[in-house]
Design a protein around this nucleic acid. Sequence first.
DNA 1: GATGAATGAGGGTTCATTCAT
DNA 2: GATGAATGAACCCTCATTCAT
Lengths: 216, 216, 216, 216
Amino acid sequence: MSTKETITSSSVETKERIINSAIAVFGEKGYHQATIAEIAEHANIGKGTLYWYFSSKEELFSGMIEQGIETFNSKLKVLLEDEEPFYGNQLLAYIQEYLYFFYNHRHLARIFSSGPQGLSDEFRQKMLKWCEQFIKINTDLIQRGIEAGFFCSGLDIERAVAAFTGIVSAFGNRQFLNSQRKKIEEESVFIYNLLVDGIASKDKGEKINDENYKKE
Amino acid sequence: MSTKETITSSSVETKERIINSAIAVFGEKGYHQATIAEIAEHANIGKGTLYWYFSSKEELFSGMIEQGIETFNSKLKVLLEDEEPFYGNQLLAYIQEYLYFFYNHRHLARIFSSGPQGLSDEFRQKMLKWCEQFIKINTDLIQRGIEAGFFCSGLDIERAVAAFTGIVSAFGNRQFLNSQRKKIEEESVFIYNLLVDGIASKDKGEKINDENYKKE
Amino acid sequence: MSTKETITSSSVETKERIINSAIAVFGEKGYHQATIAEIAEHANIGKGTLYWYFSSKEELFSGMIEQGIETFNSKLKVLLEDEEPFYGNQLLAYIQEYLYFFYNHRHLARIFSSGPQGLSDEFRQKMLKWCEQFIKINTDLIQRGIEAGFFCSGLDIERAVAAFTGIVSAFGNRQFLNSQRKKIEEESVFIYNLLVDGIASKDKGEKINDENYKKE
Amino acid sequence: MSTKETITSSSVETKERIINSAIAVFGEKGYHQATIAEIAEHANIGKGTLYWYFSSKEELFSGMIEQGIETFNSKLKVLLEDEEPFYGNQLLAYIQEYLYFFYNHRHLARIFSSGPQGLSDEFRQKMLKWCEQFIKINTDLIQRGIEAGFFCSGLDIERAVAAFTGIVSAFGNRQFLNSQRKKIEEESVFIYNLLVDGIASKDKGEKINDENYKKE
DNA sequence: GATGAATGAGGGTTCATTCAT
DNA sequence: GATGAATGAACCCTCATTCAT
């Protein structure tokens, strides 16, 4: 290993350590309540060092999220590209991955649902971009389900994506609020079944469709 | 009307004005980014006056949320106590009320989803209490659905509540992010149908149950 | 005196105290080396109080200079508007006023000669405006001298103003460097005589004019 | 050329490059606003390298000025030692040299006029020494003029030096502020004539002397 | 009841300087 | 000789809170 590589690897290590500390501290306290001093201390570096790698608190925050999002997105993409003959299995794996991620990155989830209050327009733009990417992937998931004949052909995709995201987020937050990790596999199955069949008993009233809804 | 009453009514008015300003400013900026100065200015009073009605920023915040929650909860309770013979109609009305509230009180929604980061333990306790109340009401809703034979008898209520809350929140946030009001009625029907029947086509694979899941 | 007046007068007093402290501290240390903490301490107020009156360090600096400049300019204007039959007396009084001011406001003088390095464009604009005002007043002085037949009719006014300003500034700085106040009256007379007759002996070589300069 | 010499010459070169960068950056931004990082970058070296040649920012600053001053002083000295029969020519050449230098080294001029605010006592001492050297040279110039019978024999030399320095500095700064090079030759003649004869018309009132001044 | 001037702890950021490589 | 990552003291500024009027 050459000197240069050593230096580089050490630099990367420090940056990694900073990001991990950022995840820990931002995750626990939220953006505004977390302090640079605490993050630096957590990473065992001086405050100034942090500024060698990130030009501002916001950039650190943004960099941290970006990394997480990219990791997450790429994991989801891999799952989507899997050559699984039965779509249902793919869906189930996808839901599990989602819950795992929410469990391990509660702060990211919270940031996404709480919105980028009090941050720069630049950050807002980035958030928007991430959201779009995110929705795109989920849209792909649903789309594929329709193509596979798994979901109804007339499904309103946009709404389905919203519902899907909402359910998974809620389960993620629930894990956080209870501060205890549920068996993620069980939860995944529950969500899967809800999507597949709903939760109504089979002798329930009819579904509402445009026709009978208008009659009311 | 005696002088005292006049003063009192004026006090109530002022407190009301402060809360409304708090809703406006906290709603726009979030807790940490909103300042007492701005809220006081928005309410056309001096900062000192605000402290006469609320002993701290956090108390104001907490008071504001409490009011909103209580309004919301009581609305939902009224719906639940309605003597509606068909549970489905009740459920649909409930969903609509939910979405309307989210649309009109986006900030509260955001606060709930963003969690109580960086606030006192006392506040955290209150949040927990509100959450419990909230979950309780939703649990009642689902419970009633089971009793009415509308929902499956074996339904995991806790999970169903989480899923329900998540879906509705997601639709609420979507309205906010897109900055355009969707047709709430249509969205309600979509959610209703998802709960009733799921979104899968009817020639899909079987539901997963404990037995076939273990086999994988 | 009404309550309101009392409050106002107290506010004015505080602001005045801050400006005086700013004069003292900026004057001694220069802009970048002076700290808000020291100025506040010198004024016997909290740091935050300073920000109630001035929105930034630069605004305080700028406000301080503006006040000084305006005081100075108005003093000079009064001298110019004096109904003095003999221009020479007016000139002498003007020079004296100048030296007094330089002696009492060395920092202002220094700021003007050192230029607004490291400050905002807004400040730079203000400086430019002040400079113009300042040059305007001095130009009036010289102009009036020409009209009174005191200065040569063919005098290059712009250059004369530059020379005049330079001489007086140099005497002001000299007082500062030596840290001892010379007898300002004597210095004024010296400057006056230099302007009137130069410092050459009368059997010196001729003045240079366009003709004999070209011959060289 | 031996290796050692090569290294040494390279060292000298590097040091030279640092000083030139210092001139550029200090000149543009002023002492406190210039950063070591920027100077190093401008010189295309690492920050650490700069500290190998100069032990501190202040020492760099001081070294830079010293070099400039010495260059200037030696130029002026050469002019003084010139064997010119007519003093007026020497004076004129001196003035021109002055203006040229100011034009080419505006930053040094500014530093001198802005004073050593916020720097160490050691630096202040150096500044004082340089000032003295500088005044000494100018004093020599004026002294020589008196000896040559060009200036009045009773001239107050100290004051004459101050006035002379002030005038030339003002013309130098003017060049800088206007950002356009005046015709230095013309300006020199103006200054020369002002020194020789003043700027008053010849039917002006009398010079003020101790006798008639006291009468007022 | 109402006000707003005063406070000061606390946080983000800069930058001269050091030192291991 | 040369480098640049690491450091931390110091500074400007914000803002919740208080209190005399």
